[in-house]
Simulated scan of single mutants.
Amino acid sequence: MEPEERERRETVKAMLSKLRKAADPQEIQATLRASHFGGEMKYLPQTTFSQADLAYALEAAARTYEAVERADRRPSTALLLRFGQLCSVREPALLDRLWQHTKGHPFPRKSDLVGCTVPEEFHHLVLDDEPSKEVASRAAMVSSLRAAALRAIGHLLMERPQADPNPHTPNVAAVALIKTTEGLAEAVDGDEGWAEKVQLPSATREWLAWELRSLGHGEAAQALAEPPGDTSR
């Protein structure tokens, strides 16, 4: 690992950990109530938030937030905005440092925020929130794939998979498609090479690649065409 990357990772770990531990749990609870949080407040602590606690408050997988705080993965824009909101990161200079270390660039003032719900305290920092083609395309892709999965699951549950337009539907299990759609948005968000990193059973990969091609995402489909070795159903 290069010295600069090692230093960045250590800075990220120290910054996120410090901000999490310094956050006021009562403020977090108030923010969550105002934002129509989908989880149960009784499961959140009244004092210090652990990694698992904050992951729950962020409505993210525990391993996802843990990897972000360890600097093993860069957070999605939506997750980082939510983190800043919950941990009361409102100072522009601190916000810029947080973005620089975790995302590799200063806090975005333009198209990077498109499609995300920008916390109210950050509105004055956003100068241009016109939709970007890239974000719109990704959102449309995720939405289309979820719809395709629901369509295929319907055929599988009615025991007529051959009726589905995707020829690979008879080879996949409904539960596999459910798990795929649950993790799809997180995998795609903010990661150009997401398709190469997705760990899926071979039959599910073939199903997903077919759908991507039909939607016009040939590059992503090609990246999925060569699985990393998992051939289980």
Score class of each variant (00 low, 15 high):
Pro3Ser: 03
Arg6Glu: 14
Glu7Leu: 13
Arg9Lys: 15
Glu10Tyr: 02
Ala14Ser: 15
Ala14Phe: 11
Met15Ser: 13
Met15Asp: 11
Lys18Leu: 14
Lys18Glu: 15
Leu19Gly: 04
Arg20Cys: 07
Lys21Ser: 15
Ala22Asp: 15
Ala23Cys: 13
Ala23Leu: 09
Gln26Asn: 14
Glu27Ala: 14
Gln29Val: 09
Gln29Cys: 10
Gln29Phe: 09
Ala34Val: 01
Ser35Leu: 10
His36Phe: 08
Gly39Phe: 04
Glu40Val: 05
Lys42Thr: 13
Tyr43Ser: 08
Thr48Ile: 06
Ser50Gln: 04
Gln51Val: 14
Leu54Glu: 10
Leu54Ile: 07
Ala55Pro: 04
Ala57Pro: 04
Leu58Lys: 06
Ala61Trp: 04
Ala61Asp: 12
Ala62Phe: 02
Thr64Gly: 00
Thr64Lys: 00
Glu66Ala: 15
Ala67Trp: 02
Val68Asn: 00
Glu69Ser: 03
Ala71Ile: 04
Pro75Met: 12
Ser76Gln: 10
Thr77Lys: 12
Ala78Arg: 15
Leu81Glu: 11
Phe83Ile: 09
Gly84Tyr: 01
Gly84Val: 03
Gln85Val: 01
Val89Trp: 02
Val89Tyr: 04
Arg90Gly: 05
Arg90Gln: 12
Glu91Tyr: 05
Leu94Ala: 06
Leu94Gly: 00
Leu94Asp: 03
Lys103Gly: 08
Pro108Val: 06
Arg109Lys: 07
Arg109Gln: 07
Val114Met: 05
Cys116His: 11
Thr117Val: 10
Thr117Glu: 14
Thr117Met: 03
Thr117Pro: 00
Val118Leu: 07
Val118Ala: 03
Pro119Thr: 05
Glu121Gly: 00
Phe122Ala: 03
His123Val: 08
Leu125Asn: 04
Val126Gln: 11
Leu127Val: 08
Asp128Cys: 12
Ser132Trp: 04
Glu134Ala: 09
Val135Cys: 02
Ser137Tyr: 00
Arg138His: 13
Arg138Ile: 01
Ala139Pro: 00
Ala140Glu: 11
Ala140Gln: 09
Met141Gln: 09
Ser144Val: 00
Ala147Asp: 06
Ala148Met: 05
Gly154Leu: 03
Gly154Arg: 05
Leu156Asp: 04
Met158Tyr: 07
Glu159Trp: 01
Asn166Arg: 02
Pro167Glu: 05
Asn171Leu: 14
Asn171Gly: 08
Ala173Glu: 13
Ala173Met: 10
Ala176Trp: 02
Ala176Thr: 11
Thr181Ala: 15
Gly183Asp: 02
Ala185Asn: 10
Glu186Cys: 06
Ala187Glu: 14
Ala187Tyr: 01
Ala187Ile: 00
Val188Thr: 09
Asp189Val: 00
Gly190Ile: 07
Gly190Phe: 08
Asp191Gly: 03
Glu192Cys: 02
Glu196Pro: 01
Lys197Thr: 14
Gln199Arg: 14
Gln199Pro: 07
Leu200Thr: 02
Ser202Asp: 10
Thr204Arg: 11
Arg205Cys: 11
Glu206Asn: 13
Glu206His: 13
Glu206Thr: 13
Leu208Ala: 07
Glu211Met: 08
Leu212Val: 08
Leu212Thr: 08
Arg213Gly: 10
Ala221Asp: 14
Gln222Asp: 15
Ala225Phe: 02
Glu226Asn: 11
Pro228Ser: 09
Gly229Ser: 07
Gly229Cys: 06
Arg233Ile: 09
